[in-house]
Design a protein around this nucleic acid. Structure first.
Lengths: 132, 132
DNA sequence: GCATTAATTAGGAAGTTGGCTAAGTTTAGT
DNA sequence: ACTAAACTTAGCCAACTTCCTAATTAATGC
């Protein structure tokens, strides 16, 4: 299990060509943007209301909104002169899926390492294995 | 629930000052780095073995390893002239925790929205509520 | 000890990010 | 019609990213 072929498959299918994950994780890598997401959980809001808590010029803030939109995390619509921003509820799913998959692989590996250590310890207790 | 105070608390505790999450998500935002993580699930490996599948000069690749290390995702040790890289199994936990927390908040909000819509529909069916 | 291997250091080009100010544009209010 | 509000565009800057090549250092193998 987890031989070179399996790894290649995983690499090419899961991680290599995933512009989605790129822009998604990228969008999440900034505290201002994470704060905006949390704020939006309380409900959709116009740009200037979202921007208000941040000590930042509006164009700079708009840049963050753009990255959130690029990452698929929010959607915006303009009505009159007001642009309203809303969460895209399922947007975090790919990130979560990737992380969960990694954890499974990692833990699988570590379980086997645990088994190995246990076996070593037993052998040592019995004096049947190598001393080191 | 989820009034301004609650939101502030969430902002300041969960998202605002989290250099960990910054560098963690940052590290995850690149396909080469995600591929390295997946490869490392099959076992620790020296730098040049890790670098081999990638069409990239070694110093460039080392830059990716550095970002992974900065994000706390891998640890490296040098024995002789060989630097061995290994996963840090719990490194993804903060990312997953943050995502799960967001999902709970988001879904909480959406459940309440669902309730609201259901109520509206009932009222409309009964003719007891506003027409729009 | 000398060549080879494995990694590192130094320095640089090209593009992106994250901030700014100043000057539009479009809509809403009176 | 005129003002104010809510973005939007344009342009600039410093810092960081992501790649490179070339030169250097530090083991190892013969």
């Amino acid at each position: 299990m987890l031989d070179a072929t399996a790894i290649d498959k995983i690499l090419s299918h899961m991680t290599y060509h995933s512009p989605d994950l790129d822009s998604l994780f990228q969008a999440l890598s900034d505290p201002t943007r994470r704060a905006v997401l949390t704020r939006l959980a309380a409900g959709s809001a116009p740009v200037s209301e979202l921007a208000e808590p941040f000590d930042m010029a509006l164009p700079s803030f708009m840049g963050h909104l753009k990255k959130l939109e690029d990452g698929g995390l929010i959607e915006t619509t303009k009505a009159g002169r007001i642009r309203t921003c809303a969460l895209v509820p399922k947007a975090l799913d790919p990130a979560r899926t990737w992380i969960d998959a990694q954890r499974e692989i990692w833990e699988g590996r570590l379980d086997r390492l645990d088994d190995y250590v246990m076996k070593l310890m037993k052998e040592r207790a019995n004096g049947t294995g190598p001393k080191d």
